[in-house]
Simulated scan of single mutants.
Amino acid sequence: MGALDGILVADFSRVLAGPYATMLLADMGADVIKVEAPGGDDTRNWLPPERDGVSTYYLGVNRGKRSVALDLKDPADRALAHELSARADVFIENFKPGGLSAYGLDYPAVRERNPKVVYASITGFGAEGGAHLPGYDLIVQAVSGLMSLTGSADGPPYRAGMSVFDVITGLHAVSGILAALYAGGGQRVEVNLMSSALSALVNHTSAVVAGEVTPHRMGNAHPSLFPYEPLECADGDLVVAAGNDGQFRKLCEVLGVPELADDARFARTRDRTANRAALKPLLVAELKKRTRAELFAQLSAVGVACGPINTVTEGVALAEDLGLEPVVGPGGVPSVRHPIRFSGTPAGYRLPPPALDEHGDEIRKWLR
């Protein structure tokens, strides 16, 4: 049995943040009913890449759910949506603020018919001054400041290589839903991409609000640590992360230059950060004498964090080599394992991502 067996989730979300959240809930045992418009979730058509004609984007965030297509403008379908909201333990949506009120599916209406419901809303910029702004991850990466931090110091700003704030907001939604269920339900949980972004920028937003410092783009460098970036070896770059004085000393010993750890310019974290321009070429001169594979093995053996810059394919392969078993295949459709391991209530993968309205008949019959 999953930890959330017996929990019914009415999923009125689409694209990424909401579907990612509800997939995680499904993995943990919840019965998730994915309510789609007759045209289906937008990501069904985000191609390429694809598997058997279906978008891998859609496949990546929708396993474990049952799909029903409902046209909320149709009175009969709208009545079914009302009945589903009355039975659900969790109702989750990512419409624009106020967008569901016309259909009687806003929080006051749903709570009136279901006082114990946990009603989770995901927006881009909240329900107040930013209610009119569309919630695209790329836009939030721009306006939150993340893009100002991403890219080389003397180059243009870049987006992250994935929809980082959609995923983080989905995780926050799961956290809020679980907390509200634990508290007994009967409340609204609101998350938005902008607040999630500012929270996720942690040390950078802390620099602004606590230190009155505006962070700036530094390429792969870290503002408070060195070495904590890719460094050149004999056959390419290796990311090296010496997060404290002890790790730096071990790094120097492996490289055969223990005297660097005793040099007053480099002895402490603050010193190494201030004198990175002097320290970096000294380290690179030694690193270039060995290959990435040699250094990965030697540094890892003494507890110095490091790693090659892999492709995503190589990343999955590494997880397999480490025994993390990253790939699961419900219904023959490969996807990435739930990230949490439970000793007593393990995650399960009961259903593959559903076709549009695949379970429509059984769900309509059950709701009538």
Rank of each mutant, 00 (worst) to 15 (best):
D5I: 07
L8R: 09
L8P: 03
S13M: 08
R14T: 15
V15C: 13
V15I: 15
L16R: 14
A17Q: 07
A30I: 04
A30V: 06
A37N: 05
G39D: 09
G39W: 01
D41R: 09
T43F: 13
R44Q: 09
N45A: 14
L47D: 08
L47H: 13
G53T: 09
Y57N: 14
N62Y: 12
G64F: 03
A69S: 10
L70W: 01
D71K: 07
K73P: 04
D74N: 11
A76F: 00
A81G: 02
A86I: 03
R87F: 07
R87A: 08
A88S: 04
D89A: 04
I92P: 00
E93W: 02
G98L: 02
A102D: 01
G104I: 06
D106C: 06
Y107F: 13
P108R: 12
Y119M: 11
Y119H: 12
S121A: 13
I122M: 04
A127L: 02
E128R: 15
E128H: 13
E128V: 11
G130V: 11
A131S: 13
L133Q: 01
D137S: 05
Q141G: 01
A142H: 06
V143I: 15
M147I: 12
S152Q: 13
S152H: 10
D154P: 00
D154H: 10
P157M: 14
G161L: 08
V164Y: 07
V167W: 07
G170R: 10
G170Y: 07
L171C: 09
H172Q: 14
V174E: 06
G176L: 05
A179N: 03
Y182R: 15
A183P: 01
G185W: 04
G186F: 03
G186L: 10
G186C: 11
R188A: 11
V189I: 13
N192I: 02
N192C: 09
A197P: 02
L198V: 14
L201S: 11
N203L: 03
T214Y: 09
M218A: 14
M218K: 14
G219I: 02
N220D: 11
N220I: 00
F226R: 06
P230Y: 12
P230A: 14
P230F: 10
P230I: 15
L231I: 06
D237L: 15
A241Y: 00
A242Y: 03
N244L: 08
N244T: 11
D245H: 03
Q247W: 02
L255Y: 05
G256V: 08
P258F: 10
P258M: 10
R268T: 15
R270N: 11
R272W: 02
R276N: 04
A277F: 00
K280Q: 13
L282H: 04
L282I: 01
R292H: 10
F296P: 00
S300W: 00
S300Y: 04
A301P: 00
G303P: 00
V304G: 03
V312H: 10
V312P: 07
V312R: 10
T313F: 06
E314Y: 05
V316G: 09
D321Q: 14
L324G: 08
P326A: 15
V327G: 02
G329C: 15
G331C: 04
V333A: 11
R337M: 04
H338K: 06
H338W: 00
P339Y: 10
I340Y: 04
P353D: 12
L356M: 08
D357E: 03
D361M: 00
R364L: 06
R364E: 08
K365E: 13
L367I: 08
